[in-house]
Nucleic acid binder design. Sequence first.
DNA 1: TCTTAATAATACTATTTTAGTATTATTAAA
DNA 2: TTTAATAATACTAAAATAGTATTATTAAGA
Lengths: 135, 135
Amino acid sequence: MNFISRDTDYAVRALIYMARQPKAEVVTVDDIVKKERLPERFLRRILQKLARKGFLASNKGKGGGFSLVRSPGGIRLTDLMETFQGKMNLTNCLLKGRICPNVMRGCLLRKKLRAIGKELDNKLNKITIASLMKG
Amino acid sequence: MNFISRDTDYAVRALIYMARQPKAEVVTVDDIVKKERLPERFLRRILQKLARKGFLASNKGKGGGFSLVRSPGGIRLTDLMETFQGKMNLTNCLLKGRICPNVMRGCLLRKKLRAIGKELDNKLNKITIASLMKG
DNA sequence: TCTTAATAATACTATTTTAGTATTATTAAA
DNA sequence: TTTAATAATACTAAAATAGTATTATTAAGA
């Protein structure tokens, strides 16, 4: 069971690569593909999604490419996880349509997980692209 | 993105139900299905797996059913998650066969996640079937 | 010993998610 | 107007998830 999906992972790598460029240059997908060895078409779709979500700007045409919109310190790992994996749900009740006998008396499992999830979020929220660039 | 899969969730419910029975009785699948409203065939397979893994004993034949082998305090949520979802991997590197450029200099993302994962494990490990029975 | 009420084992299936690929359109600089 | 870039959309293969179906086995009890 993976905590971080492949798209999120690729997005992190690409964003770190972009953030490392001096003075927020426009970067081409080909460049990232070559340096980070990521699958081209797939990375393209990931960057397109990041652009739609406001993380990146895309410039078509010759001399085009992608560039960072937000500062590296403003892009959290959890933002990317939410973008590509959906909101992380620690306390999901899986008895969807049916009547969960625990709902009435308050599900103890969910209560415990909610507390743990809150602390986990606090820690994960501190991980940003900027905090990952030092390595 | 769900943290706990459906099988794990069903297993938790079934085990709590069994643990609530006075004096570790043999419980039939039908009984659990009726009381907890879980899908019969699927629950059967879940209980069989729990039996193979040593959580439950199964008794065939008339008067048969499943019974707890371990004490409710000895069955951790993380044991069940591992059984049904595989070991939770917070720090997976997704560049499988390829060369991750970060491996050399030590991947900062993995380092950070490793620390968070350790604390998460410590907390999750305290959740047992017994601790979930009070509700 | 035969019936019956239970689980065991195995194989199958449908849906969703994951991880891509392929194709065609659009854009803007030179 | 050519060319080098991304955009958009549709398609596909594989794996995981969430089951269902079928047949075998077992042991109690009449």
